[in-house]
Design a protein around this nucleic acid. Structure first.
Length: 376
RNA sequence: GGGGAGAUACCAAAGUGGCCAACUGGGGCUGACUGUAACUCAGCUGACGUACGUCUUCGUAGGUUCGAAUCCUGCUCUCCCCA
């Protein structure tokens, strides 16, 4: 994997770049749709590629390991062959599940022991076997196994948690180096910077990951309960230290405004479940602001879902019809909303990139962060 | 024609003397959702008021009682069974 930094702003830390993978090019800044179980919920790969214009998607180690199981994916020839997505894939390691499934797992030095949310069986995830699983999944970008520290963690816990993540990173890296890709395309491993909302921990964490000459670096443990102010501050602290010539991935973020603010602070890659999950639940992100399509006021609004939208769903369906579908629990409603939101997110980062390359990012961003937060 | 059952809030359906403005579903309204245990979850849903509360409700008209959705009587309507 290679990263080429094409342009940096003068009045902002925003960057435009290009990541070359064996499954194609990724133009940054980029948003990566989340496909936890191997599929971006409700979206066909054709729409993902042609309509939404996704350049890379996510999968999840924990979820894919439990179902369908690593063995099936390996026998399929890797996740690309299994799900038919021939573009780049990034897999999260299960580190987020250490956080989100906190009630059904136990943390030890060795790893995280999960009780399956599917059948109650026990599974020990270690830095080593998480690397092995991601080799078998065949992700272009693998993530280090970390503990995603809660945003409200006390300093003492955050420090202890960070140190565990750092020891796990050493083990991840060793296993990564000792093993090879299984399917003929190369794989990269991204370390993850933790440290909760404590600048000194974040600095230590950022400096620590520099010791690994990885192809890119991730900022984790944000948008997990801390304030937005803290989140932005942590991004600034970390990006001060991360190298210019490697892509930076802000994990799990965020709202359209979060993304623009993070781009402004030098982040290149994003993923978030928001466009799909919130879409399924009736929330639409548009260039005019946020719509709760379930609200009564859209019941007889027969105008297009999004007159400025780039997706075919934006012009093929009315707001009134989409509202009807969502309210009635029709599957198509969730699909249309997800597709619209993802297309919007991809449009947004593409526009950001265009403005960065034009040198007009800052002014454009300032205008957009106001508009995008409006509730319609 | 004979016999039986029943009428409760938008719908369905509990409640059968005070703990009832009335369980619970559904529907409706609003909100939440950030590396997906999520097509999920939460609140509100007689009126007025932030709220303590006040007022009007359980087919209808009366009655009994300190007190009725709950007991009694008349009336209206609905459903079921047998002819």
């Amino acid at each position: 994997m290679q990263f080429e930094l094409q342009y940096t702003c003068e009045e902002s830390k925003a960057r435009a770049g290009k990541i070359q993978t064996d499954h194609g090019v990724i133009e940054t800044p980029i948003f990566m749709p989340v496909g936890t179980a191997g599929s971006v919920k409700g979206i066909h790969k054709r729409d993902l590629k042609d309509d939404i214009q996704a350049q890379i998607i996510l999968g999840n180690t924990y979820h894919l390991y439990l179902r369908p199981g690593t063995d099936i994916i390996e026998r399929a020839g890797g996740l690309h062959r299994f799900n038919g997505w021939d573009g780049p894939i990034l897999t999260d390691s299960g580190g987020f599940q250490v956080f989100s499934l906190g009630d059904i797992r136990k943390l030890t030095e060795e790893g995280a022991k999960f009780q399956s949310h599917i059948d109650g069986s026990y599974h020990l995830f270690t830095p080593e076997n998480v690397m092995d699983i991601q080799r078998k999944i065949g992700a272009d970008i693998m993530m280090a196994f970390d503990e995603c520290t809660p945003g409200d963690a006390e300093f003492a816990y955050a420090k202890k948690s960070l140190e565990l993540t750092q020891r796990w990173l050493e083990r991840c890296w060793n296993r990564f180096e000792q093993t090879s890709p299984l399917y003929g395309h190369s794989q990269s491993l991204f370390p993850i910077v933790q440290g909760a909302v404590y600048p000194e921990l974040r600095r230590k964490a950022a400096e620590h990951v520099l010791g690994f000459n990885s192809d890119g670096y991730a900022i984790g443990g944000l948008s997990v309960g801390e304030s937005e102010k803290d989140m932005y501050a942590m991004i600034e602290v970390v990006n001060e230290i991360l190298p210019q010539d490697k892509p930076r991935y802000l994990m799990g973020v965020g709202t359209p405004v979060n993304i623009l603010q993070a781009i402004d602070r030098g982040v290149d890659m994003f993923d978030c479940v928001m466009p799909t999950r919130n879409g399924r639940n009736g929330m639409l992100f548009t260039s005019e602001g946020i719509i709760n399509i379930r609200n009564r006021k859209w019941a007889d609004d027969f105008s297009p879902v999004d007159p400025n939208g780039t997706s075919f769903v934006d012009h093929s369906y009315s707001r009134a019809f989409l509202r009807h579908l969502i309210i009635a629990g029709e599957m198509l409603g969730a699909q249309i909303a997800s597709q619209h939101n993802l297309a919007f997110y991809l449009w947004l980062v593409k526009e950001a990139r265009r403005h960065i390359l034009d040198g007009t990012f800052k002014a454009w961003k300032e205008e957009m962060v106001v508009r995008l937060a409006v509730r319609l």
